[in-house]
Nucleic acid binder design. Structure first.
Lengths: 228, 228
DNA sequence: TAGGAAGTTGACCGATTGTTCAAGCTTGAA
DNA sequence: TTCAAGCTTGAACAATCGGTCAACTTCCTA
């Protein structure tokens, strides 16, 4: 990642393991960091890094501004911490793409999971999109490293499916780009989709139709031969 | 649109019709406005509305900062002027979707045109994406009005294709959302795609593969029975 | 229970934000 | 040739920017 370790200001006794209720120094720290991270995520997602102001984040998190700098030394480190949290969410669904899985199941489940996280966690997706549109300066190492290797690895799985005659010929990487696009659009461009559909927000019915449509495009698009 | 008429500061003798070479007051104005709009487009596309600074736009356009305010009274009006230019580009390709067209041709041509503009004009697409992610505050009237009507109208065309048995059952609006997503991702998220593919920029080969993959997903996805 | 680290916060820093102003320059119409 | 309208621009505006500081309170530990 393109940032120093945030967890080094004071020593971090960390984890707390047990779901201890709410006491002790560590608990205070954990609670405040969470409050700030959540507020930061929302503001960065709407305005991008340079558009977001620490004052607005502090206001939304209901802490005085110097408190932000106490827990995260700079705006940039706060941004890095928010991005780091998002990476895992972003990658999570990809483990549906496994060699031994049936392509129809795997792809349908992947689409469903990605759409589900567009529904329940739209802000991380939007922040990620903002970062990429802005040139991905803060996540370049991740993209060129871990994500690139992961895509190569999953592409190998898809090529395996093709070789086994389970799906039609298709460019594996571009299939993945398509899957990302088809699913994240419902988080990133929710405002457009809602307005066009004449709704205030994207409700369950919209996501049901989205899942049906995206799944159909993908499964028929790669001509999955179901079964065995 | 969500802005006043920019063209009302002094009287605008406008248009110039003929491709007159480069003289006269109107020509100076036209040239400077174009310079500023181009620079503004690039900066807004990278930073969003609130993240962009008029100083950076002025620097990039190579004009003193007060000159910006002479031609576009405020930052917001400049932003509105940039957005307005983009709307037409955005809608243009949609006229491929016509009742009398063969679905296979129409959809393939639509995908190709959209990908072509992702390749040649990525910045307008990115600016549009930034605006939508940020909540679409400046383009809400357009989305709920003109775009909504256009989508309803094109959905009717697609429903016609379905009724005529030319393509399979599918939700027309979500098919359009999918088409937008599949094509604009190559402009909006170019940084991610390039990094993952190990390239510096998206070259012609990438766009060729993108066109093939997206077209395949769409055409097979809706099971076009090629006509005649 | 005393001491000190951890956490909180109002006031303030220089830099940058969008915007205004007034003075000067350029140019086309009379 | 005149001169007002159009255009240019350095200087400066209040407001906000990210960040610092020192004084204060809270609470764990020895």
């Amino acid at each position: 990642m393109a940032h120093g370790d945030v967890r080094s200001l004071p020593a971090r006794r960390a984890a707390n393991g047990k779901g201890r209720p709410a006491n002790g120094r560590a608990a205070v720290r954990e609670r405040n960091e969470a409050k700030i991270l959540k507020a930061a995520e929302a503001v960065f997602a709407r305005k991008g890094f340079s558009g977001a102001s620490t004052a607005e984040i502090a206001r939304k998190a209901k802490v005085p501004k110097p408190n932000l700098h106490y827990y995260f030394r700079t705006k940039r480190l706060l941004y890095a911490a928010v991005l780091e949290r998002i990476l895992e969410i972003w990658l999570d669904a990809l483990d549906e793409i496994r060699p031994e899985a049936e392509p129809a199941d795997a792809l349908a489940r992947y689409v469903a999971r990605k759409l589900e996280s567009s529904r329940t966690l739209p802000e991380p997706s939007r922040l990620w999109a903002m970062e990429l549109i802005g040139g991905a300066r803060h996540v370049q190492p991740f993209l060129k490293g871990r994500l690139r290797r992961l895509v190569q690895q999953k592409s190998e799985v898809i090529r395996g499916w093709i070789a086994a005659g389970k799906i039609d010929e298709i460019d594996p990487a571009h299939l993945l780009f398509g899957l990302w696009a088809l699913t994240q659009t419902y988080a990133d461009f929710a405002a457009q989709i809602a307005a066009v559909l004449g709704k205030d927000r994207l409700d369950d019915a919209v996501f049901a139709a989205a899942t049906r449509t995206a799944t159909q495009l993908v499964l028929r698009g790669v001509a999955v031969r179901s079964g065995r």
